[in-house]
C-alpha cells in the first residue's frame, strides 16, 4: 500500500459533473437496467464503478459520475429511483464529496528513458507494482485530479497502456 500521494483538489472537478452513489439489489441484469435507462433518456455517464456494498451480498453500490448538462439532475435521479432494483440514491455534489480513483499503467522503459520514467512516476505520486525486462507497471490510488495529472505526464512516453477504474465517492465528514 503506497502512502497517500498528491491529494489534488476535488473542487477543480467540473461543476457540471455530479456523483450518484446508488445502492442496488445484487441481481442479474441490474447494471443493464441502469445503463439502459441512461441510454434511453439521453443521459451521459462519465464514469461508473460497481462493487458489492458493505457486508451485504444482497446489495451492490454503483458510483456513477453523470454529466448533469445532458439532463437535469432531478430527472436523472427521478428516473433512476423508479427502477425497482434501485434501493437508495445519494447525490453528492463534487465539493461535498471525497472522491478516489485507481489508475494503473504499463510504461515501456529502456536505458535512455529509465530515469525520466522513474522521475515522472515519483513526481506523480505513483508507485511501482510490477517490473519487467522492458516495462514497469505503476499504480496510483488518489483523487481524480491526481490521476488526471499522472495520465497527462505519462503522455510523453509512447505505447503506454493505461486503465482507470472510475471513481468511488463518500460524503466529506463534517
Amino acid at each position: 500500500m503506497s502512502p497517500e500521494p498528491y491529494l489534488g483538489d476535488t473542487t477543480r472537478t467540473p461543476i457540471r459533473h455530479h456523483i450518484l452513489s446508488v445502492l442496488v439489489e445484487n441481481k442479474p441484469g441490474v447494471l443493464a437496467r441502469i445503463a439502459g435507462l441512461f441510454a434511453r433518456r439521453g443521459f451521459n455517464i462519465y464514469s461508473l464503478a460497481v462493487a458489492p456494498a458493505e457486508s451485504h451480498a444482497r446489495f451492490s453500490r454503483v458510483t456513477i459520475v453523470v454529466d448533469a448538462e445532458s439532463a437535469p439532475l432531478e430527472q436523472i435521479v427521478g428516473q433512476l429511483d423508479k427502477l425497482v432494483n434501485v434501493v437508495a440514491i445519494t447525490d453528492l455534489a463534487p465539493r461535498d464529496a471525497l472522491e478516489r480513483e485507481l489508475l494503473i499503467a504499463s510504461v515501456p522503459v529502456d536505458d535512455d528513458n529509465r530515469l525520466t520514467v522513474l522521475d515522472t512516476i515519483t513526481h506523480g505520486g505513483a508507485s511501482i507494482v510490477d517490473v519487467g525486462a522492458t516495462s514497469v507497471t505503476v499504480m496510483l490510488a488518489g483523487t481524480p485530479d491526481a490521476c488526471d495529472e499522472l495520465e497527462r505526464s505519462l503522455e510523453k512516453f509512447s505505447d503506454v497502456e493505461l486503465h482507470r477504474t472510475g471513481r468511488v465517492a463518500l460524503p466529506r465528514l463534517g
Binding site: 437535469p72 432531478e74 430527472q75 427521478g78 428516473q79 429511483d81 423508479k82
Partner: peptide, 8 residues
C-alpha cells in the same frame, strides 16, 4: 404519483 414527472 410519479415524482419523475415533476419539472420534466
Amino acid at each position: 404519483i410519479d415524482k419523475a414527472e415533476f419539472n420534466k
